[in-house]
Design a protein around this nucleic acid. Structure first.
Lengths: 336, 336
DNA sequence: CTGTTAGCGCCTTCAA
DNA sequence: TTGAAGGCGCTAACAG
């Protein structure tokens, strides 16, 4: 697999390498007939430019990196697609990375991308500790997070206003007549869960509707499993059945649905169910009502913010985070 | 964002750039105290090596590219993960690309990856016409397909033996007592479907069991939608209900399940259902019996084949394709 | 053990 | 319109 280089083309076409470069890049300062002759030679030798060399000299790669926790989750893979689209639209290429919810892998990818000279990184941090590795690279490459970041690390984020989301979910269930609310699938490490749960409780309290968070400290690899197992656990607890359940996320809600099916519980006949995130994956049974921001809007905003930083060479901490307004997406998992 | 280079480090540490390079790459021929001094300077200036420059001179990127048709499908994203794992295990990095089932995007990525000097490409071609663009780059970079390729393009593939798969599915249903078989979700453009359907029919015929392919030329963006709509269409056709259905794929099967639910049809009580591919995604309701090869085995094999080509510089057409043996994965969508 | 030097493939002045 | 030459950041001989 010997590489054909610009030099080979030059020799073959009997011109200088400068002319070849000019021809390839559509620059002017070269006669049309020479250009077409050169291009023909390229064809013939099936020449492929070496992007590494080009990026090295131009000091631009026109590439950003995206790091997500779990490519197999429909939620994250949709975000990846939307983000890619947004980047492509602005003329940037994208490198996709899957951190697999492992801090180690996340850090490795951060490093890898920095070394590959990506001009910016869009990252969905897997947890609060992610900021440690992120701040390690913040001086080398602009970053935008897709999750609220704790602490003052100077990295801007673009995410949903989860407090609003929790309130919207609670208000909706109450408006549909629910009078005994439960939050299932809570995982305290997730900041988003904390916000959702807290404002859920607050809203219920303000309206004097009994509500509680089912806290079950068992953890599982996926949100689906967490939902499934937490709810099974709840069913065995002997606690009274709620008439409205807020799941910590849509994936969690799907787990709850599975547990219900195994126990002959029907949704929405036996209780109303609402989730967060608006996973758009098509499921054979459930049509889940949910609260979420527009994924497209979120990714567009994030990419725009990131490329803004890239293009104006914004130093660390030069940009402001943004919280997007979530909306209710009504489907058929709530009665009334 | 001015880059810190090896030169800056050398100046700051009062040594030559060669020493810095040696220190960074853990080579010997440098005293320990000098090395640690250099490394400290790197820390302090938060130096990140420029991978482009390094790859350029080493003429190696230790990177392969993976192109899949749909990152949002759990099937493909699982393959991506398995392939990444296999590549990482062998010390290669991976660039993930999503062709979105578009020939244009597929070709663009092929080109992009070649320009980025990936050392090999693993591709799940979106269709027979993919070979056109693939053969355009076959002289620049080794490739392995994850799908059977038509024609003599010299590109090896690693995929399931779909004829066997079709036979296994048919035999299983028959062994479970099904006596009226139907194949749903057929899309003639997909070679795999053709194999599956043909050997399904053949097997049934050999055993003298009535069987047919429900041909419905409506097409949809996803297999899920195809399954859903084809089966709804079938239900309205007034044809007699089968007692065993082979879905063109697991995704198709999920669509069928949805149509069943809307029509009060129960699985496996009303008919047995079997799919292909073994999507491992967790679904709230269905537990689908299916026929598939081990994804891990397939990706391991493909990566090994590809890296073999890379490392021994195999010329075009130097390697043989392999067809893997599918197995039955028994779950609970078939009665008996 | 250390530093100097010659490229890797390409783009981009600068002269001609 | 053309070509020669310098350099992007790095590694790998080759001298010392």
């Amino acid at each position: 697999m010997k590489q054909v280089t610009i030099k080979d083309i030059a020799r073959e076409a009997g011109v200088s390498i400068a002319s070849v470069s000019r021809a390839l890049n559509g620059m002017d300062g070269i006669s049309e007939k020479k250009r077409s002759r050169i291009l023909r030679v390229c064809e013939r030798l099936s020449y492929t430019p070496n992007g590494l060399a080009r990026s090295l000299v131009k000091r631009r790669t026109q590439t950003i990196g995206i790091i997500m926790p779990d490519i197999m989750s429909p939620f994250y893979s949709e975000l990846m697609v939307k983000a890619s689209d947004a980047a492509h639209k602005r003329g940037y290429q994208v490198l996709l990375c899957n951190s697999f919810r492992e801090l180690r892998a996340e850090r490795d990818y951060l490093k890898l991308l920095a070394e590959h000279q990506v001009e910016g990184i869009l990252i969905f941090p897997i947890g609060p500790r992610s900021t440690e590795s992120m701040s390690e690279f913040i001086h080398n490459v602009p970053m935008v997070a897709l999750n609220e970041l704790t602490g003052q690390c100077g990295i801007p984020y673009v995410c949903a206003d989860e407090e609003q989301a929790g309130r919207i979910a609670a208000e909706y269930l109450i408006s549909r007549g629910c009078r005994n609310l439960l939050f299932v699938g809570f995982k305290p490490e997730r900041l988003a869960h904390r916000y959702r749960a807290a404002s859920f409780m607050e809203t219920a309290k303000a309206k004097r509707i009994p509500a509680q968070i089912y806290e079950c400290n068992l953890d599982f690899r996926t949100s689906f499993e967490r939902g499934y197992n937490h709810f099974k656990h709840f069913l065995q607890s002997g606690l009274s059945m709620p008439d409205g359940i807020v799941a910590a996320s849509d994936a969690t809600a799907n787990g709850i649905v599975k547990a219900c099916r195994e126990n002959g519980i029907r949704i929405p006949e036996d209780f109303s169910l609402i989730g967060f995130d608006n996973i758009t994956e098509e499921l054979p049974y459930i049509e889940l009502t949910t609260v979420a921001v527009s994924h497209e809007e979120q990714m567009e905003t994030a990419v725009e913010l990131l490329l803004g930083m890239v293009e104006e060479g914004t130093p660390v901490g030069g940009k402001a985070s943004v919280k997007l307004e979530p909306r209710l997406v009504e489907r058929r998992s709530c009665k009334g």
